[in-house]
Design a protein around this nucleic acid. Structure first.
Lengths: 350, 350
DNA sequence: ACTTACCTTTGGATCGTTCCAATTCGGCAA
DNA sequence: TTGCCGAATTGGAACGATCCAAAGGTAAGT
């Protein structure tokens, strides 16, 4: 168990009732705007509520009514702008529907995820929106959450596909299609030697994007070299470090489809260090359309995922599930949109 | 009033008690690790808890004990990386202390702030961390929150200083000192015509930074032109638009102290559009040290505020206040640190 | 006067937990 | 046998709201 902070005595329904000589029940009816109460009584009670500065105790009400007015939002990394915007969208939609958001950050640790889920569950959320930590496993999540509380998975799949897995709703990005769009765009610009740069192949989103890239290349009848598939951590720093791998062998690519914007920005940095001008001497695309993508030098061609809108959508999907707990689970794939900017230049003329 | 979502029947202490033939009270003692219970009983109960998949109902416990285990975090703009990192820090520290974070975003609207505060209060948080919306007034906040729940103000002051105002704790950044550091740094680099760019003068943080800038200029015996003080919204887009104002008149500055990083990045964009290379032809500094500051082209000289650490600090300050509700209110000013990068070049030789 | 109806109000039980005073029980000394 | 002690357990009353069945009051209909 754990901490508890004592609270000063609060004004309750009884105080109001005593203050204007009616019963608790009547005050409760007034609070909920019941048409049963007499106009004059209502006015009297409302005055008293204001006079005493009454604050509704939703926890007590939820206990009695066996309801919940909160939803847990568990994120792997709030410091990442993508998830921050997502969270803003979730909170906006939930707030509008009268729910309050219980926040929990896991910092990409599956162990912390367990702890956070456990702690949030004790507060009785009506549902959970979970963007899993990197090595989070389906059976762990199931053990922490149980089947009682609806869960919406966002952005990543869980490790170890169980049958229970299918029980949860999902909201994913259309990674494969997005990467195909980016690749096709570069091909249309005239590129033939195109690399896929960044990400870890044990992340589902990376595998999907890679598949989209390979798909587009195959369809266009273009060859792909093994050393054009470069793995790295999805950070700018690591991407910049790994830039050289692209240029070590003989068949040097003229463009790269990057795992995400962070990687693309890192690659830009690496290119600059080699004396290559991104968007002039080498073309590249990103994924996510984070705020700085539009403001890079050059501005980055990327796939817009509208994270805030995804947040609203996630909230909607979960609330829909709360209405119909028995409906079949939904796998939603959110569309992504190619945003063409200057980083995806044609190949340099020889 | 508003929404409520029905919840399936949960396992309660009664179920456990019945399941292993002890009383509710004993099970409760086991849950709280009381030394009173017999070892064998404890083992039996713990088995049963696991067997039935019991989940502690903290709301009910809080109701009975008149305690709270949540803290409300109300932010003006979660999509801004500065506040996102701050939120991550708050959640981390609160989580470690066994509190859960109730999130609320106001989107810079004082009206929404009222609504959000009201809604969160109904869930009975032990305290509130508030980063106010732009035109939020002290008396409004007081009306919404009352004096019962401790509040920590972060980052901005409220409009309309009331006597009540002093009742709240504050955590602010050392804006004035930071801006003076940045200005002095540019002066040391050899600049003489330095602008202050961005922000709205009706925001307290902007006024403080402007004061720091003016202070440093005056101390160095440098003149300041009125048209070197450019107001704009604290966003990249607006900053980029307003760039031209700096170059319209005769006395053209060679450097700018920007209100924050977002503005600085926008100004960089605007400079590029005019054919000026930031960090070569024109020097500039930011404020906040958001993640992309280090990775801009060029990397941005700025003031590090360590937002995640600020978040932890805010949580600590508030929890300290919960321990000692009667102690005198604290005004904390967090130090900021100048991080020199390439954007603050010397002035170009003529 | 008596039933019927409607409008309004109400007491008491209840949600899941904790607190408190009281109880049970075995052992041990008188 | 009785009495007392400590260790372990327990029933019932809270916490602040809601639900429900029932009651009070007024007005109309017969």
């Amino acid at each position: 168990m754990s901490s508890h902070t004592p609270i000063g005595r609060k004004i309750t329904l009884n105080d109001i009732a005593a203050g204007c000589d009616v019963s608790r029940a009547t005050v409760s009816l007034v609070l909920r705007g019941s048409p049963l109460v007499n106009k004059l009584t209502r006015a009297r009670v409302e005055d008293e509520l204001r006079r005493q500065g009454y604050v509704y105790n939703r926890a007590a009400a939820n206990l009695r009514r066996n309801t919940s007015s909160s939803i847990a939002l568990v994120l792997n990394d709030l410091a990442n702008p993508f998830f921050a915007e997502f969270a803003a969208g979730v909170d906006e939609a939930l707030g509008a529907a009268g729910f309050v958001t219980l926040l929990g950050c896991t910092g990409e640790s599956a162990a912390r995820e367990q702890a956070v889920l456990g702690s949030l569950l004790e507060h009785g959320p009506a549902g959970i929106i979970l963007s899993p930590a990197e090595h989070s496993e389906a059976h762990q999540v199931l053990a922490a959450v149980g089947r009682r509380v609806p869960l919406l998975l966002f952005n990543r799949e869980l490790g170890g596909t169980l049958p229970e897995y299918a029980h949860w709703d999902q909201l994913m990005l259309d990674n494969q299609h997005g990467a195909r769009l980016a690749t096709e765009h570069l091909i249309a610009r005239g590129h033939q030697r195109i690399a896929f740069f960044g990400g870890h192949h044990d992340s589902s989103s990376c595998r999907q994007r890679l598949a989209g890239y390979l798909d587009a290349m195959r369809t266009a009848g273009l060859r792909t070299e093994p050393h054009w598939q470069v793995e790295c951590a999805p950070t700018r720093l690591d991407a910049a470090h790994r830039t050289s791998v692209l240029f070590d062998a003989t068949q040097v690519p003229t463009a790269a489809v990057c795992y995400n914007d962070a990687v693309a920005l890192g690659l830009m940095l690496g290119l600059n260090q080699r004396g290559l001008r991104p968007g002039r001497d080498f073309a590249l695309t990103g994924f996510d359309d984070i705020a700085e993508a539009a403001l890079g030098m050059p501005p980055l061609t990327t796939l817009s995922t509208a994270p805030q809108e995804r947040g609203r959508q996630a909230a909607q999907l979960l609330m829909q599930r709360l209405q119909q707990p028995q409906a079949a689970s939904q796998q939603t794939i959110a569309p992504v949109q190619l945003v063409v900017r200057e980083s995806s230049c044609p190949p340099p003329a020889h």
